[in-house]
């Protein structure tokens, strides 16, 4: 009996993998995403393996500041201040991925917290939260982020806080709608009939059931947030100095776009490819948690 049970669990996992891997584009997305993650991890824990001394600073080469085209030495060429683009992009991925992950996950946690409570409790609390999130939804992301960032001061920390503030309402709404449908399921009522307190119902029944779709949403959002983050540095909203960051890298090459297009194209491409990859991956994950897909 014991064995059969294990077999069943393995079968479930195997099925999930089969579904995910039968979606070819999702697999490509996953591979690109993994490449970014590995790069970020190496950069964090063993930068020397990638030939980088300080992962937090760009290595300027003042001897030749004009962007150079790709060559055996500089595979992706260099950008203004003589920065090697390949190395800079690899450094930047760590920062961009780390910060956008931080933003999305904190936004999701805050959003989920409020979303679950407001949907479960209903009443005036729900009403107020709805109005607040309405306000957030009424203003474009970028404008809001700029506004908040401006109010908090133009530092990287305040930028992150600004983006979290921009991002949580999205998750509030999403978990709210998820919670509303989970709340209608009879197992919630069964728990109430068994004497389980409301707090426990939210923690033990509702939160775990909102988790899979929220995780999928997180993977879909990573790309968007990274792009916004990069945009903000690109327009020079942050005092970046020599911060290896994709948006900043793009802006460095901008003055030379006529003679050295690669200097803007490659960092931009790094953002686009990432956004595309997580989107594809997210689609694949969505299939995995979709029960209709599972049964066919």
């Amino acid at each position: 009996m014991e064995k059969r049970m294990e077999a069943k669990e393995i079968e479930g996992l195997r099925l999930s993998l089969v579904i995910f891997f039968s979606n070819k584009t999702a697999v490509v997305g996953l591979m690109i995403f993994m490449a970014y993650v590995i790069d970020a991890l190496l950069m964090q824990f063993a930068p020397s393996m990638l030939g980088v001394n300080n992962p937090n600073a760009l290595a300027f080469d003042y001897s030749n500041t004009i962007p150079q085209p790709p060559s055996p030495e500089h595979i992706l060429g260099t950008t203004y201040f003589g920065v090697d683009l390949l190395q800079a992009i690899m450094q930047a991925i760590r920062i961009d991925l780390g910060y956008s992950g931080l933003i999305v996950i904190s936004g999701a946690l805050i959003g989920a917290l409020f979303g679950i409570i407001s949907a479960y409790a209903g009443g005036w609390f729900d009403e107020i939260l709805m109005r607040i999130t309405d306000i957030f939804f009424g203003i474009p992301y970028l404008v809001l982020a700029l506004g908040v960032g401006f109010a908090l001061g133009r530092t990287i920390e305040s930028m992150i806080i600004a983006l979290i503030i921009v991002w949580w309402p999205l998750y509030e709404r999403y978990t709210r709608s998820l919670t509303l449908s989970i709340k209608e399921q009879t197992f919630i009522e069964a728990a109430k009939a068994s004497g389980v307190s409301d707090l426990k119902i939210m923690i033990k029944h509702i939160f775990p059931n909102t988790l899979p779709p929220v995780l999928v949403q997180i993977s879909l959002d990573l790309g968007v947030v990274m792009a916004i983050f990069a945009t903000l540095t690109f327009i020079g909203f942050l005092p970046t100095g020599n911060l290896p960051e994709l948006g900043y890298l793009t802006s460095l090459g901008l003055n030379y776009i006529q003679i050295a297009p690669w200097a803007t194209i490659f960092p931009g491409l790094a953002i686009t490819i990432f956004a595309l990859a997580v989107n594809l991956m997210g689609d694949g994950l969505r299939d995995v948690i979709d029960p209709r897909r599972r049964s066919s």
Binding site: T186, A190, A191
Partner: peptide
């Protein structure tokens, strides 16, 4: 209480 739908009454 025991509910009608055995599919949605268990988490």
């Amino acid at each position: 209480i025991v509910f009608q739908d055995p599919y949605s009454s268990l988490d």
